[in-house]
Deep mutational scan, measured.
Amino acid sequence: MSIQHFRVALIPFFAAFCLPVFAHPETLVKVKDAEDQLGARVGYIELDLNSGKILESFRPEERFPMMSTFKVLLCGAVLSRVDAGQEQLGRRIHYSQNDLVEYSPVTEKHLTDGMTVRELCSAAITMSDNTAANLLLTTIGGPKELTAFLHNMGDHVTRLDRWEPELNEAIPNDERDTTMPAAMATTLRKLLTGELLTLASRQQLIDWMEADKVAGPLLRSALPAGWFIADKSGAGERGSRGIIAALGPDGKPSRIVVIYTTGSQATMDERNRQIAEIGASLIKHW
């Protein structure tokens, strides 16, 4: 067993022997301040990774656009098919120029040779490549099948209805392509620590998230040296922004954090800054 596999296998073990965790309302004060600064709703939840206990939450059962955070769930569904012998990570998928959609920095470079399922998941999570996500959605049967996968996990809230990039439209009061912070946090925890996926697939999923290259201005910008984070960000229309993450000190994750916002007129930089400040408060009061 590799060191990384050992780390993920012992996530519940280490967490069980940690000192009790206590909620700190100071972080919620910052979440509410972010709402004021952005002029928009902000949803927040913080779960203990081992027990699933909610440590703090704000608007945990209000719907927010998922945006690209759905790509972690998508690759979880792909990995479940791999575990069941219905898919192979090494299978190569070929596609054409007509398949390319807006923001496809990886797939646009491989029109000639195609990409493997493993490479597509890596591109979808680490670079948020939209064509990679659409190609992977095709392998599982489309958005409705991802929703069905989530329902089978016990998540009857999260739903995907459309493809990239239309799913980022974020129309107010439109339930399409949305989740709730509580539902997303619980589902992410199941994917990373539950028995739904094999140990190898859980490790692969967290490795992809740990290698995320496009979430630097968010929670990662607030992390002290030595902290662990595996995350996936999302951005959408109407001032929408979000991030889902597993993080913790001492090089291992111990909490799940989900943050979503929508309806702001603020710039992307300002949305990023507010999420980073929430992260800084979380870490300060850990």
Rank of each mutant, 00 (worst) to 15 (best):
T262V: 11
H285R: 02
E87L: 08
D155I: 15
D161H: 03
I259T: 14
S96P: 04
E270R: 12
E270G: 15
G194S: 09
I259R: 11
A200H: 05
L120H: 03
D269L: 09
P60D: 08
M153S: 06
Y95L: 10
E166M: 06
L135C: 01
M127T: 13
A246I: 13
T187A: 06
E35M: 08
L73I: 10
E26D: 01
R241H: 15
F64H: 08
Y95F: 10
I229F: 15
L218H: 14
N130P: 04
Q97V: 03
K284G: 05
A40F: 09
E175N: 08
L79V: 02
L73H: 00
H156T: 11
G142A: 01
K30R: 15
S57Q: 11
F64C: 02
V258P: 06
R241I: 11
L136H: 03
E164L: 14
R41M: 15
D269Y: 06
S68F: 07
N134I: 02
T186V: 09
C75R: 00
L282E: 06
V157L: 13
K284I: 05
R159E: 15
N152Y: 15
L74N: 03
I54L: 10
G43R: 08
L111F: 03
E62D: 09
E56N: 13
S51W: 01
P181K: 05
G52F: 10
V29K: 13
K252M: 13
R238Q: 05
S51D: 04
V257K: 15
K32F: 04
L49H: 01
R255Q: 08
V214Q: 15
L199Y: 07
W163C: 12
L47D: 02
P65F: 02
T116N: 01
F228C: 15
T178R: 12
H285S: 02
D155Y: 11
V157G: 10
L55V: 09
G251I: 08
G234L: 06
D161A: 02
I171G: 00
I244W: 11
R273K: 10
I54H: 10
A230C: 13
N173Y: 07
A276P: 11
G52A: 11
A148F: 02
I125C: 13
P65Y: 04
L167G: 00
M115P: 06
M268P: 15
P249T: 05
E56F: 12
D155A: 09
D113N: 06
M115R: 06
D207Y: 03
Y103K: 10
M180R: 09
T179K: 03
E102G: 14
T198M: 04
S128K: 14
P143V: 06
L49G: 00
D269W: 10
G43T: 07
I243V: 08
T193P: 11
L188H: 15
T262C: 10
K32S: 11
R189H: 14
A215N: 15
L73K: 06
Q274I: 12
A245I: 08
G85M: 05
H24F: 08
L199K: 01
D48W: 05
L197Q: 10
L47R: 02
P253D: 13
F149A: 08
N50G: 11
N272C: 07
G76P: 04
R92A: 11
L247N: 06
R255L: 04
I256C: 13
G90M: 03
E195A: 00
A222N: 14
D113S: 09
E35C: 08
G248S: 05
L136C: 07
C75K: 00
A215M: 09
A40R: 04
H156N: 10
D48Q: 07
T178A: 14
M66V: 10
G263K: 04
K71F: 15
L160Q: 13
K213T: 12
L282P: 10
M67R: 07
S264A: 01
T69C: 08
